[in-house]
Simulated scan of single mutants.
Amino acid sequence: MDDRFRAKYPRLGDGHFQVTSAESPRYNCVAWAAGQDSRWWAPIEFSWWPETAQVGWSVKALESVFKLMGYDIASDPGLVPGLEKVAIFAADDEWTHVARQLESGYWTSKLGQGVDIEHELDGLAGSPYGDVAVIMSRPRSSAPSAPPPLRYLSYDVVGA
């Protein structure tokens, strides 16, 4: 494994891990988990965020984003045929990262402005992302789902 990943995410070396894309600053983990790769989704100025979702860094705010896309709270991160899952990571009661489960049972993540990776769920736990706080699931569709309507956040939306 590349040393740049080993230092920041030490648990990635314990199991399945592979880089699946080139680096890209165009999108982040939230967009990637939502199946999008053209906009940066974040509750901060000069970013995109679903129109009717709560704006903020609380886990509940990120849950509201995925509820708009048909996800509900789930109890188990294990693979269930016919379900697509996301895992919301948090530290100090604020979300830090989100990963999406693949049909293989492995997870896919976008690491900031860097690469996409395929990994085991616990591969990112204990890293700067904290730990998995919430698992959500929805029926898996063969067609990509459309994102909820997005708005571009400006200073007056996110505050000082």
Score class of each variant (00 low, 15 high):
R140F: 09
W41K: 01
Q54S: 13
V19Q: 05
P149K: 06
W57S: 11
I117H: 02
S38N: 15
Q54Y: 11
D76Q: 11
P147T: 07
S75F: 11
Q54E: 13
E84V: 08
A22E: 14
A99R: 01
N28P: 05
E84G: 03
V65I: 11
P43C: 10
P10Q: 12
Q101L: 06
S127N: 10
V158G: 05
P77K: 03
E63K: 08
E118Q: 09
A146R: 05
D116H: 11
K67R: 15
L150R: 03
G13A: 15
L68M: 13
Y71W: 07
D2C: 13
Q113D: 14
A7S: 15
Y129C: 03
S75N: 12
R100A: 09
N28W: 03
D14C: 13
L121W: 02
A133F: 08
V55Y: 03
V132M: 08
D72K: 15
Q18I: 00
R26P: 05
G56H: 03
P128A: 13
G112I: 10
D156Y: 11
Y9E: 04
Y152N: 11
D14K: 12
S47M: 09
L124I: 07
E94V: 15
F66M: 07
L12T: 02
P10A: 11
G114P: 04
F46I: 13
Y155P: 09
L83F: 11
E120K: 07
I88D: 00
T96Q: 06
K110T: 06
A33R: 01
L124E: 00
V98I: 10
G15T: 09
D2W: 10
G112Y: 12
G130T: 07
Y152I: 09
V55P: 02
E63H: 08
S127Q: 08
W48Q: 00
D76Y: 08
S58I: 09
Y71C: 04
P128C: 12
L111F: 06
G56F: 03
G13L: 12
R39N: 07
F89N: 00
R151K: 15
E103N: 14
S142Y: 14
L150V: 08
G82E: 07
R100N: 07
P147S: 12
D116A: 13
G114Y: 05
P50Y: 00
L153Y: 03
H97C: 07
A146K: 03
W95H: 06
E51V: 01
W32T: 00
L121E: 00
A42N: 07
D122L: 11
A99F: 05
F66S: 01
W48V: 01
S58N: 11
G123I: 01
E120P: 04
F5T: 02
T108H: 01
D2N: 14
K8S: 12
I117N: 00
A22G: 14
W41C: 02
G13R: 15
Q54G: 11
S137V: 03
M69C: 09
V132S: 05
D131R: 06
W48G: 00
P43N: 09
S141G: 14
S127D: 08
Y27M: 04
G105I: 02
A22C: 12
E120Q: 14
D116S: 12
A42E: 04
V98R: 00
I88A: 02
G35I: 04
P77M: 09
P50W: 00
F89W: 06
W95I: 04
W40G: 01
V157R: 15
D2K: 10
S109L: 03
V115H: 06
L124S: 01
A91V: 10
R138N: 08
E45G: 09
D92M: 10
V157I: 15
V132R: 01
